[in-house]
């Protein structure tokens, strides 16, 4: 890993330095350093278990890092005295499983935090909510409950919920992984329009076509390290590292692995 010069605080949207995270004896993140610039769209790709989601969750401290520092704008999230509730307001997050509040209507999902956290007046919160529902094309469903919506619709509402807090950056944790294939497109379209509006976005994803088209930068992670990063065209189109090449080969050609290989792997794993 090349050592990076220490940046002046506040010059990056996110600045991660020497981040490590272990769950018990399992070290999931092994010395990660990464900077994200304002307005940048960064896709994090890599095999499952490579630490992508954990890295994302360390940015807003849903996971507490074992060591290292994370700065969001000028604020050190990892500082023991950090006011997390205040910092988190500025960081939108979209989850794989949507996590809409099932006991609230779509509109209430978007207004509850505005009213309770930002102390906005109810009318103002509703106006902001409607604006953001319009942005994701869900205006007609404001009185529905999440359970009445499709997965794609729920995820669009979840994006609108985050946007209603007017965050400075957005984290997406595999936002389309729980969706039926025909519903993926509508969510990606919303994310793309967000990217075009200049939102700072960090996206953990398996959608290579999306990463290639929308990302300013692609970060490939494996085994708790950042193996390779750079412009999407380079990392996905012409990867330098052998591990990146083999990962992309498997992802882009899922039919290429023949049965003998899988059986061999199974024998290896049962033997161990």
């Amino acid at each position: 890993m090349p050592t990076q010069p220490i940046p002046a605080p506040g010059s990056h949207a996110i600045s991660i330095r020497n981040l490590k995270k272990s769950f018990g004896s399992n070290e999931v993140l092994k010395d990660i350093s990464l900077e994200i610039e304002p307005g940048e769209v960064v896709c994090i790709i890599g095999p499952s278990g490579s630490g992508k989601s954990t890295l994302l969750r360390c940015v807003n401290l849903l996971e507490v890092p074992t060591s290292g520092t994370v700065l969001v704008g000028p604020d050190e999230v990892t500082h023991p005295d950090a006011d997390l509730d205040r910092i988190r307001r500025r960081i939108g997050m979209v989850f794989q499983s949507f996590n809409l509040f099932p006991h609230l209507t779509v509109l209430e999902n978007l207004t509850v935090a505005q009213i309770k956290v930002l102390k906005r007046r109810k009318e103002d919160a509703i106006a902001t909510a409607r604006l953001n529902l319009h942005r994701v094309g869900m205006s007609s469903k404001e009185d529905a409950y999440p359970g009445q919506l499709s997965g794609g619709q729920q995820q669009r509402v979840a994006i609108a919920r985050s946007l209603s807090m007017e965050p400075q950056l957005m984290l997406f944790d595999e936002p389309t992984s729980a969706l039926d294939p025909e519903l993926v497109g509508e969510v990606l379209a919303v994310m793309k329009s967000l990217a075009n509006e200049g939102m700072t976005m960090v996206i953990v994803t398996h959608e290579m076509a999306f990463a290639r088209e929308v990302a300013d930068r692609v970060v490939f992670m494996d085994g708790g390290y950042i193996v390779e990063q750079g412009p999407a065209q380079e990392v996905i189109g012409n990867p330098r590292e052998e591990r990146t090449q083999s990962f992309l080969h498997r992802v882009l050609n899922p039919m290429v692995i023949d049965a003998a290989e899988v059986i061999d792997e199974e024998e290896l794993s049962t033997a161990s």
Binding site: L62, D85, F95, V117, M165
Partner: peptide, 17 residues
């Protein structure tokens, strides 16, 4: 589900809230 808690905390709500 734990995700409900995480979603709320991500929106800046305190634990009590």
């Amino acid at each position: 589900p734990k995700g409900q808690l995480e979603a709320a905390r991500t929106l800046g709500m305190s634990h009590t809230r």
